[in-house]
């Protein structure tokens, strides 16, 4: 099965993968509308935690959500990390009520109507690939209960949007088995 694999030697920390992800999963699929119009319906309280708790908190403005996230150590190492669609997914094992499931093609998907926002998956996923989606809560009386939020490998696309958007080809769409042996030869 093919997944998105980040090459840290090439990541330039531009976050365009996040932009592409947001746009791809927006209603309008237009970057300006996705950010400036759709983004405004976000829950103020929860904006404090997503996509970056502290950035957004300081900004006081909610931002739309991305399913991949560029992780950065502030010293030149960065890469965009998203769901690795594990064969034995820890998140699915931890999910309280089976909202996360393995689709027939091997993708790990979330049943957004069922998720109760217990964040067992956030706890279980060692890759930090699942985030909280404050736009939606399924539990009555608990607006706080953001549901989970994760990469779905862009079902409408042949190649995920983030891979297409990456200016340095730091994200590649690759068979899982090939990742182990993948080497970037000349980048350092």
């Amino acid at each position: 099965m093919k997944v998105v694999f980040p090459i840290e030697e090439r990541c330039i920390d531009c976050h365009l993968c996040e932009v592409a992800c947001i746009v791809e999963h927006s209603e309008t699929k237009d970057p300006i509308l996705a950010y400036m119009v759709e983004g405004l319906s976000f829950n103020e309280e929860w904006s404090a935690f997503t996509p970056d708790p502290h950035e957004a908190l300081e900004a006081g403005k909610p931002k739309p959500l991305n399913r991949t996230r560029v992780r950065n150590n502030g010293a030149g190492v960065s890469f965009s990390m998203m769901c690795r669609h594990c064969e034995e997914p820890k998140c699915v094992e931890a999910c309280k009520n089976g909202s996360l499931y393995i689709a027939e093609d091997g993708r790990i998907l979330l049943n957004e109507d069922k998720c109760v926002g217990c964040w067992m998956c956030i706890m279980a996923c060692p890759w930090g690939a699942i985030s909280r989606n404050p736009t939606r809560g399924n539990v009555k009386g608990l607006e706080r209960t953001a549901i989970s939020h994760k990469c779905d490998l862009c079902p409408d696309r042949e190649i995920p949007a983030c891979v297409m958007a990456c200016p340095t080809e730091a994200l590649i769409y690759i068979e899982k088995e090939e990742i182990k042996n993948y080497e970037v030869r000349f980048s350092r």
């Binding site: 030697e9 090439r10 990541c11 330039i12 920390d13 010293a75 030149g76 960065s78 340095t168 080809e169 730091a170 970037v184 030869r185 000349f186 980048s187 350092r188």
Partner: peptide, 13 residues
């Protein structure tokens, strides 16, 4: 030669 900037050149591209 700043590592974060040098990465902007993808050797293959």
């Amino acid at each position: 030669n700043r590592p974060d900037l040098a990465k902007r050149i993808n050797v293959d591209i």
